[in-house]
Amino acid sequence: MTDPDRPGATPTHRTPLPPPRTGGRYRIAVVCLGNICRSPIGQVVLTEHVDRAGLSDRVEVVSAGTGGWHVGHPMDRRAATVLTAHGYDASQHRATQFEATWFDEHDLVLAMDGSNHADLTDVAPGGDVSRLRMFRDFDPRADDGDRDVPDPYFGDEDGFGSVLATVERTAAALVAALEAELGRG
Protein backbone atom coordinates (compact mmCIF):
# COMPACT_ATOMS: atom_id res chain seq x y z
CA MET A 1 0.00 0.00 0.00
CA THR A 2 1.38 3.41 -0.83
CA ASP A 3 0.64 6.85 0.49
CA PRO A 4 -1.51 8.59 -2.09
CA ASP A 5 -0.41 11.96 -0.68
CA ARG A 6 3.25 11.30 -1.51
CA PRO A 7 4.03 10.68 -5.17
CA GLY A 8 6.59 7.90 -5.50
CA ALA A 9 6.15 6.80 -1.89
CA THR A 10 7.30 3.31 -1.06
CA PRO A 11 4.91 0.70 0.31
CA THR A 12 4.23 0.92 4.02
CA HIS A 13 4.29 -1.92 6.52
CA ARG A 14 0.65 -1.53 7.42
CA THR A 15 -1.05 -4.78 8.26
CA PRO A 16 -4.66 -5.54 9.04
CA LEU A 17 -6.03 -5.07 12.51
CA PRO A 18 -6.23 -8.25 14.56
CA PRO A 19 -9.87 -9.30 14.87
CA PRO A 20 -11.70 -8.53 18.11
CA ARG A 21 -11.25 -11.17 20.81
CA THR A 22 -14.81 -10.99 22.15
CA GLY A 23 -18.03 -9.12 21.62
CA GLY A 24 -16.85 -6.50 24.12
CA ARG A 25 -14.86 -3.35 23.49
CA TYR A 26 -11.86 -3.50 21.16
CA ARG A 27 -8.94 -2.90 23.53
CA ILE A 28 -5.76 -1.16 22.34
CA ALA A 29 -2.55 -0.73 24.34
CA VAL A 30 0.01 1.85 23.16
CA VAL A 31 3.47 1.04 24.51
CA CYS A 32 6.78 2.92 24.75
CA LEU A 33 9.71 2.70 27.17
CA GLY A 34 8.66 4.65 30.28
CA ASN A 35 5.04 5.60 29.57
CA ILE A 36 5.64 9.31 30.12
CA CYS A 37 6.11 10.67 26.57
CA ARG A 38 5.15 8.83 23.39
CA SER A 39 2.64 6.26 24.59
CA PRO A 40 0.61 8.71 26.70
CA ILE A 41 0.54 11.10 23.73
CA GLY A 42 -0.63 8.13 21.66
CA GLN A 43 -3.29 7.19 24.21
CA VAL A 44 -4.67 10.71 24.60
CA VAL A 45 -4.74 11.47 20.86
CA LEU A 46 -6.07 8.08 19.80
CA THR A 47 -8.77 8.23 22.48
CA GLU A 48 -9.85 11.66 21.21
CA HIS A 49 -9.99 10.39 17.61
CA VAL A 50 -12.00 7.35 18.73
CA ASP A 51 -14.42 9.64 20.58
CA ARG A 52 -14.83 11.94 17.56
CA ALA A 53 -15.57 8.92 15.36
CA GLY A 54 -18.32 7.80 17.73
CA LEU A 55 -16.47 4.59 18.62
CA SER A 56 -15.87 5.22 22.33
CA ASP A 57 -18.51 2.66 23.31
CA ARG A 58 -16.66 0.02 21.24
CA VAL A 59 -12.96 0.95 21.56
CA GLU A 60 -10.81 1.47 24.66
CA VAL A 61 -7.27 2.84 24.54
CA VAL A 62 -4.68 2.51 27.32
CA SER A 63 -0.94 2.98 27.46
CA ALA A 64 2.03 1.50 29.28
CA GLY A 65 5.81 1.38 29.35
CA THR A 66 8.05 -1.64 29.04
CA GLY A 67 10.03 -0.32 32.03
CA GLY A 68 8.76 0.52 35.48
CA TRP A 69 10.86 3.58 36.39
CA HIS A 70 8.00 6.06 36.16
CA VAL A 71 5.04 3.98 37.40
CA GLY A 72 2.48 6.27 39.03
CA HIS A 73 4.02 9.48 37.67
CA PRO A 74 2.23 11.94 35.39
CA MET A 75 3.43 12.30 31.82
CA ASP A 76 6.52 14.37 31.07
CA ARG A 77 5.66 18.06 31.42
CA ARG A 78 6.75 18.71 27.82
CA ALA A 79 4.37 16.02 26.52
CA ALA A 80 1.55 17.46 28.64
CA THR A 81 2.34 20.98 27.44
CA VAL A 82 2.23 20.08 23.74
CA LEU A 83 -1.00 18.12 24.20
CA THR A 84 -2.66 20.94 26.15
CA ALA A 85 -1.53 23.52 23.59
CA HIS A 86 -3.34 21.49 20.92
CA GLY A 87 -6.58 21.12 22.89
CA TYR A 88 -6.08 17.68 24.43
CA ASP A 89 -6.53 16.79 28.11
CA ALA A 90 -3.24 15.51 29.52
CA SER A 91 -4.22 15.73 33.18
CA GLN A 92 -5.40 12.18 33.90
CA HIS A 93 -2.35 10.13 32.88
CA ARG A 94 -0.35 8.08 35.38
CA ALA A 95 2.43 5.83 34.09
CA THR A 96 1.83 2.09 34.08
CA GLN A 97 4.10 -0.83 33.25
CA PHE A 98 3.13 -3.33 30.56
CA GLU A 99 2.67 -6.88 31.78
CA ALA A 100 2.69 -10.06 29.69
CA THR A 101 -0.97 -10.69 30.63
CA TRP A 102 -1.90 -7.62 28.58
CA PHE A 103 -1.48 -9.71 25.43
CA ASP A 104 -4.48 -11.77 26.56
CA GLU A 105 -6.45 -8.69 27.60
CA HIS A 106 -5.96 -6.48 24.53
CA ASP A 107 -6.93 -6.89 20.91
CA LEU A 108 -4.06 -4.76 19.62
CA VAL A 109 -0.71 -3.88 21.20
CA LEU A 110 1.12 -1.00 19.48
CA ALA A 111 4.87 -0.55 20.01
CA MET A 112 6.23 2.95 19.49
CA ASP A 113 9.65 1.80 18.26
CA GLY A 114 11.67 -1.27 17.32
CA SER A 115 13.23 -1.57 20.76
CA ASN A 116 9.79 -1.56 22.41
CA HIS A 117 8.64 -4.13 19.84
CA ALA A 118 11.59 -6.39 20.72
CA ASP A 119 10.91 -6.01 24.46
CA LEU A 120 7.24 -6.88 23.93
CA THR A 121 8.15 -9.85 21.76
CA ASP A 122 10.37 -11.14 24.57
CA VAL A 123 7.49 -11.17 27.09
CA ALA A 124 4.72 -12.43 24.77
CA PRO A 125 3.24 -15.60 26.30
CA GLY A 126 4.22 -18.56 24.16
CA GLY A 127 5.88 -16.15 21.73
CA ASP A 128 2.46 -15.23 20.30
CA VAL A 129 2.86 -11.77 18.81
CA SER A 130 -0.14 -11.97 16.49
CA ARG A 131 -1.68 -8.91 18.18
CA LEU A 132 1.54 -6.87 18.24
CA ARG A 133 2.10 -4.13 15.66
CA MET A 134 4.26 -1.07 15.30
CA PHE A 135 2.26 2.12 15.93
CA ARG A 136 3.41 3.54 12.60
CA ASP A 137 2.21 0.46 10.72
CA PHE A 138 -0.91 2.61 10.33
CA ASP A 139 0.94 5.82 9.36
CA PRO A 140 0.39 6.66 5.68
CA ARG A 141 3.84 8.30 5.60
CA ALA A 142 5.83 5.43 7.13
CA ASP A 143 8.18 3.54 4.86
CA ASP A 144 10.69 0.69 5.09
CA GLY A 145 13.29 2.65 7.05
CA ASP A 146 10.97 4.87 9.07
CA ARG A 147 8.65 2.94 11.37
CA ASP A 148 9.71 4.28 14.79
CA VAL A 149 8.10 7.15 16.65
CA PRO A 150 11.29 8.92 17.81
CA ASP A 151 11.76 9.23 21.56
CA PRO A 152 11.74 12.98 22.39
CA TYR A 153 12.74 12.54 26.04
CA PHE A 154 16.38 13.67 25.72
CA GLY A 155 15.63 16.42 23.21
CA ASP A 156 13.90 19.77 23.33
CA GLU A 157 10.24 20.74 23.04
CA ASP A 158 10.32 20.57 19.23
CA GLY A 159 10.66 16.79 19.44
CA PHE A 160 7.36 16.58 21.31
CA GLY A 161 5.60 18.60 18.61
CA SER A 162 6.99 16.28 15.97
CA VAL A 163 5.79 13.23 17.92
CA LEU A 164 2.34 14.79 18.24
CA ALA A 165 2.13 15.41 14.47
CA THR A 166 3.12 11.79 13.75
CA VAL A 167 0.67 10.46 16.33
CA GLU A 168 -2.22 12.60 15.07
CA ARG A 169 -1.69 11.49 11.48
CA THR A 170 -1.35 7.85 12.49
CA ALA A 171 -4.34 7.99 14.86
CA ALA A 172 -6.55 9.26 12.04
CA ALA A 173 -5.51 6.34 9.83
CA LEU A 174 -5.90 3.85 12.69
CA VAL A 175 -9.41 5.09 13.44
CA ALA A 176 -10.29 4.65 9.76
CA ALA A 177 -9.08 1.04 10.05
CA LEU A 178 -11.15 0.59 13.22
CA GLU A 179 -14.23 1.97 11.44
CA ALA A 180 -13.69 -0.49 8.62
CA GLU A 181 -13.27 -3.39 11.06
CA LEU A 182 -15.96 -2.47 13.58
CA GLY A 183 -18.32 -0.32 11.53
CA ARG A 184 -18.97 3.38 11.93
CA GLY A 185 -20.24 4.80 15.22
Rank of each mutant, 00 (worst) to 15 (best):
R6P: 03
P11A: 04
T12V: 01
P16M: 02
T22W: 05
G23I: 08
G23N: 13
Y26T: 05
R27S: 01
R27L: 02
V31Q: 00
G34D: 09
N35K: 07
N35M: 07
C37Q: 00
R38T: 05
R38V: 07
P40G: 05
H49W: 07
V50A: 09
D51H: 13
D57K: 11
D57E: 11
R58Q: 13
A64R: 04
G68C: 11
W69N: 07
V71Q: 05
G72R: 12
A80Q: 06
V82R: 03
T84V: 08
A85Q: 15
D89W: 15
A90H: 09
A90P: 14
H93G: 01
T96Y: 11
Q97P: 11
F98C: 02
A100R: 11
T101Q: 11
T101A: 15
D104M: 08
E105A: 11
H106N: 10
D107T: 03
M112V: 13
D113Y: 07
A118R: 15
T121S: 14
D122T: 13
V123E: 02
A124K: 07
P125E: 07
G126D: 11
V129K: 00
V129F: 12
S130F: 12
R131A: 06
L132Q: 00
R133E: 02
M134W: 13
R136M: 03
F138N: 01
R141K: 10
A142H: 00
D146A: 12
P150E: 08
P152Y: 06
F154R: 14
G155S: 04
G159N: 04
G161C: 10
G161T: 08
V163C: 04
A165G: 05
A165T: 15
A165C: 03
V167M: 05
V167G: 04
E168A: 05
E179F: 10
A180K: 13
A180F: 05
G183H: 14
G185C: 13
